[in-house]
Simulated assay, not measured.
Amino acid sequence: MFTSTTYSTIPTEKYAQLAKQADALMSGETNRYANLSNASALLNQFFDRINWVGFYLMDGDDELVLGPFQGLPACIRIPLGKGVCGTSALTKESMLVRDVNAFPGHIACDAASRSEVVIPLIQNEKVIGVLDVDSPELDRFSEQDVRGLEEFAAVLIKHI
């Protein structure tokens, strides 16, 4: 995992507000795709300087398939262990990639993406998908962003 040397422009308390907003938005709704769609829209509104945000969901035991997202059309299927998303799903670890071109085996769905953060979605100790956020800027994300997105993912898991 690569670590960022820059600092997030998003204060920790803003991430707490984001998590509360997501919880309220999805409260009472049981449709997984509706909640994932609203979650991607909420994150797209929350972040600046990104070009893609969305979800890849497990399809069987060895592949991720494209889920709700905001951005340009994307790769539809990603094998487990391939690229940043597949690696995060396989290892069950968040991935912070300062420069996607330096990540071995990076899958370039959008040539404009330069940095990326991926958070595995784990429910009952099983990966059900990943949250993926891309930026056209190098070193866009920080450890603070990872922690904030992990908090967001924990709230999301309750609703999908």
Rank of each mutant, 00 (worst) to 15 (best):
F2R: 04
T3V: 09
S4A: 10
T5I: 01
T5E: 04
T6H: 05
T6E: 02
T6Q: 07
Y7S: 11
S8C: 11
S8H: 14
T12Y: 15
Y15K: 06
Y15Q: 02
Q17A: 09
L18A: 02
L18Q: 04
Q21G: 03
Q21W: 09
Q21H: 15
A22W: 09
D23T: 05
L25N: 07
L25S: 11
L25I: 03
L25V: 07
L25R: 09
M26P: 03
S27N: 13
S27I: 00
E29V: 10
A34N: 12
N35C: 11
A39I: 01
A39T: 02
S40I: 00
S40Q: 01
A41E: 06
L42I: 00
F47E: 00
F47I: 00
D48G: 14
I50P: 12
I50L: 11
W52E: 02
V53T: 10
G54E: 01
G54D: 02
F55Y: 05
F55R: 03
Y56V: 01
M58L: 07
G60D: 02
D61L: 11
D61H: 14
D61Q: 15
D61R: 15
L64R: 13
L66M: 12
L66E: 02
G67T: 02
G67D: 05
G71S: 00
R77K: 14
R77F: 12
P79F: 13
G81E: 10
G81Q: 08
G81P: 08
K82N: 14
K82T: 07
A89S: 14
L90S: 15
L90Y: 15
T91I: 07
T91C: 07
E93N: 15
L96T: 00
L96K: 05
D99C: 08
N101E: 02
N101S: 09
A102V: 05
F103N: 03
H106N: 05
C109L: 05
D110E: 04
A111R: 12
S113Q: 03
V117H: 08
I119T: 03
P120T: 03
P120H: 11
E125D: 09
I128E: 05
I128F: 13
L131D: 10
V133E: 03
P136G: 09
E137D: 03
L138V: 00
R140G: 02
R140C: 04
F141P: 04
F141E: 01
E143L: 15
E143C: 09
D145C: 11
V146I: 13
R147S: 13
G148P: 06
F152W: 08
A153Y: 09
A153C: 10
A154K: 14
A154S: 13
L156K: 06
L156Y: 09
K158L: 05
K158P: 01
